[in-house]
């Protein structure tokens, strides 16, 4: 009886740590959507790039996990800045469906390129051994130390991002520009530059999640595509553009997936979409969205 309980608890804990990835990714999507009005379909590809850059830094240059946590988001974020300047910025005047199509196309191109160069089989990227010190084990409950770290890091990153947006001067520019970009620019703030940097920051956040994910899932070109479908469901459930909604819903759905895994594991991958359908039918603006 107790063993069962502990084993079930373990599934739920793993679910919540998956939720940390959902939260980080949907947070980046929410920030980008709020500011740029673009549904960034390349988010999964950028997450994958984050993992690949970490792997490349390790295998080509011998740069390890910790520096990669900083370097990979920086590199992929700069790629994001270039994408925004060269392509996405040209579509702001059009309906945001075009931004979605463009970023979707970018995602396919990026994934195709990586598949061509690195093949579709996964590359191993091991977490540093020191994470074993964080291993949690009581009887049948076992949570690898690295998963504990993902949970801590993911929560910290989400809270830090939220604090920057809600409590700082830069965050107040961001919130204001989401509401009335023209007026904010008429106050003397370079809004186009802000949009570029916001996109870069959202992409960097995806890449950071990618580095964190590299040791959990193998590093392969489709890793983002697998994730991003669930993440979009999270965004729809939380409410498009709601920062807090993205974070809370991300963790919540990780938890729900974990619980479903216990109760009826066959449904654990589908449950998110069932919830999405229910939310769309009853609260189309999402749990945290403003109608």
């Amino acid at each position: 009886m107790l063993e069962d309980l502990l084993f079930n608890l373990q599934l739920v804990a793993l679910g919540i740590s998956n939720g940390a990835f959902y939260a980080m990714l949907s947070l980046g999507l929410a920030v980008i959507f709020g500011m740029l009005n673009v549904i960034n379909f390349a988010h999964g590809a950028q997450f994958m790039m984050g993992a690949f850059v970490a792997w490349l830094l390790l295998t080509q240059l011998g740069i390890g996990y910790w520096p990669s946590l900083l370097l990979s988001p920086l590199i992929v974020g700069l790629v994001g800045v270039a994408m925004e300047r060269l392509m996405i910025a040209r579509l702001y005047k059009l309906d945001h469906l075009y931004g979605l199509l463009l970023t979707f196309g970018c995602a396919l191109v990026i994934e195709g390129l990586f598949r061509n160069i690195f093949g579709s089989s996964g590359q191993r990227y091991s977490a540093p051994r020191e994470f074993q010190a964080l291993d949690l084990e009581f009887g049948d409950f076992f949570m690898p130390g690295y998963r504990v770290w993902v949970l801590i890091a993911g929560t910290t990153i989400c809270i830090a991002t939220w604090l920057v947006i809600e409590k700082t001067k830069v965050g107040s520019y961001l919130r204001a520009a989401v509401e009335r970009p023209q007026l904010v620019q008429a106050f003397g703030i370079n809004v186009p530059l802000m949009m570029t940097l916001t996109y870069g920051a959202g992409v960097a956040l995806a890449a950071l999640a990618g580095v964190l994910a590299a040791p959990v899932y193998s590093v392969h070109p489709a890793m983002g595509a697998n994730f991003i479908i669930t993440v979009f469901a999270v965004v729809v459930i939380g409410g498009m553009g709601s920062i807090l909604g993205a974070i809370v819903t991300g963790f919540l759905l990780g938890f729900v997936q974990g619980v479903t895994d216990v109760v009826y594991s066959e449904a654990s991958q589908t449950v998110v979409f069932v919830i999405m359908a229910i939310v769309l039918l009853t609260r189309p603006a999402g749990l945290f969205g403003r109608a």
Binding site: L183, Q185, A186, F187
Partner: peptide
């Protein structure tokens, strides 16, 4: 650009007030 016009020394208060 609007931000450079603002920085030249002109400030604007719109009709709808533009409170965030």
């Amino acid at each position: 650009r609007p931000d450079l016009i603002a920085r030249a020394g002109i400030a604007y208060c719109p009709e709808e007030r533009g409170i965030f």
